[in-house]
Design a binder for these strands. Structure first.
Ligand SMILES: [Zn+2]
Ligand SMILES: [Zn+2]
Ligand SMILES: [Zn+2]
Ligand SMILES: [Zn+2]
Lengths: 153, 153
DNA sequence: TAAGACATGATATATCGTATCATTAACTTT
DNA sequence: AAAGTTAATGATACGATATATCATGTCTTA
């Protein structure tokens, strides 16, 4: 069983438990993200969908579907890149924590990592000292992936 | 001498040293950011400019001017908000470090803070462990400012 | 003053995103 | 099964952010 169908399987179960519906279209959008292995914009996903499934989907529907998938923690939005990625932990059983992302500025590759809680706590203290309240500790960092770091830009 | 004219004065000197020109328009755009005390988009700045100086500027020029000001470290772009802020350290003499920003999601207030180097180093190590290269340690964090944290959203 | 560099204006277009209303599909209740 | 209700999707319009390109203007300097 491929990684992707395994993830879809988990997503299915997840939705059943949460009492929501993983429709065909939603499954297809998620498949697109899983296959692409990088961050895609809603419009890029609509294109992918059209090519992959020989069926066109209005970008507006993609937005709605992404919002749904995000609310189920199956997908994450990268606010820095205005793109979306499939969660790396769909097939994991543990509860989902606040995600941290490394985004390759060259090729949009994304790595979802766990950052030590102590580091986040330190960050929170830093923010509090400045009189602000940290709303979301989701970090998104401008990076280069291994491949892009090697090559001459 | 007001804080703003002091900052403009410093900006002027800074540009003289770096051999660049702080033209009237560029000065006005910077003034807009200094006055606003919050992050503004290029288009918002164009509006501000029109009202403040009774002279219209095409948004495209604002973009170019912002790019210039950013290259001189007089202005920073917030990629998370797609807005721009005047640097808080224009009037400082020390060299400019990589900035970190706390952005109020409610009112666009922005605080430019210095985050301890040790924390950044830890972060860098985390990223390296994941096989990525941290391109810019500029952090932008979703926050609430003091005012907005108090009020019922 | 003529040449070159730099700055700005003007226009078109790409990209990301929201708002709104209509239509269709699915689930619920009788 | 039929009717009623809710959820999902389609369709259209529009707004905001951003880039690309070519034309025009302004400053500097020889
Ligand atoms: Zn995740
Ligand atoms: Zn890359
Ligand atoms: Zn600064
Ligand atoms: Zn605020």
């Amino acid at each position: 069983m491929s990684k992707i169908s395994k993830a879809l399987d988990h997503a299915e179960k997840h939705c059943k438990v949460s009492g929501t519906r993983l429709t065909e279209k939603r499954k297809h959008v998620l498949t697109g993200l899983l296959k692409s292995q990088k961050a895609l914009s809603a419009y890029e996903l609509a294109d992918f969908y059209r090519n992959e499934f020989n069926e066109s989907v209005p970008p507006m529907s993609v937005y709605r579907i992404l919002a749904f998938l995000e609310s189920e923690n199956l997908v994450h939005k990268l606010h820095l890149a205005n793109k979306y990625v499939a969660c790396s932990h769909i097939s994991c059983d543990h509860a989902h924590e606040v995600p941290q992302f490394l985004i390759c500025d060259e090729c949009s590759a994304v790595k979802e990592i766990g950052i030590k809680k102590t580091l986040i706590d330190t960050l929170k203290r830093n923010v509090a000292q400045a009189g602000y309240l940290l709303k979301s500790p989701q970090l998104e960092l401008h990076c280069l992936c291994q491949d892009c770091a090697k090559q001459p830009a």
